[in-house]
Amino acid sequence: MLTKRIIPCLDIKDGRTVKGVNFVDLRDAGDPVELAEAYAAEGADELVFLDISATEEKRKTLADLVWRVAERLDIPFTVGGGISSVADVDLLLHNGADKVSVNSAAVRNPGLIDALVKKFGSQCIVVALDARLVGGKWLIHLVGGKVPTEVELFSWAREVANRGAGELLFTSMDHDGTKGGFANEALARLSREVNIPVIASGGAGSMAHFADAFLEGQADAALAASVFHFKEIPIPELKKYLADRNIPMRI
């Protein structure tokens, strides 16, 4: 039976981990490679690296990092953040990324999804959906949730799936950072409306929130950052908690 995935997300700036991390046993908590290995050893099922740097050398720095991670990591990882072209994706995959996540560029130019799927295959193309509930409608937002669009979440999700994306990474910007739980209703609706896996993101604060995302939200995977970085929720305990609630886990 396919298990549900637990995915720590690492924010990267100029090749370094940005969000403060509290891994006492690490020599250098700012080193994404060392942090990634620590998460893999703890039982993380997959990792996401989100690059938030905005420098000219961004592409090269990120590609170097991807290479160093791929050298060491024996679980899959996804890279996202500012990816806007076939060439960007080609560089990351050739340096050893397993999947890439595209966001704003796909909203601005949906044909990019088709081009990526045609060249690299569905299996490595994740489309990130950042949305907020505005006047009763879930609307896609760009630039880290700051810029609203008129694009409606569920119709966009269907279009993304039809264009061949392999997976959706849905972040509720209303829930992100609140530690009040995932957007389970919207998640469940996404799972009903599209036939590809959905990763839940935004709102993790307790182990029960993860259980809700899987049971109520029907998510295939759940992603979080700070609760893992600050050891508020140790991954081995989380996985045991979820397995005890009959949620299939790799333990």
């Binding site: 396919l2 298990t3 299996q123 896996p197 295939d220």
Partner: peptide, 11 residues
């Protein structure tokens, strides 16, 4: 089509 396709993850 009654399954999510692709299958992604650990089995």
């Amino acid at each position: 089509d009654n399954l999510k396709v692709p299958q992604i993850g650990w089995n």
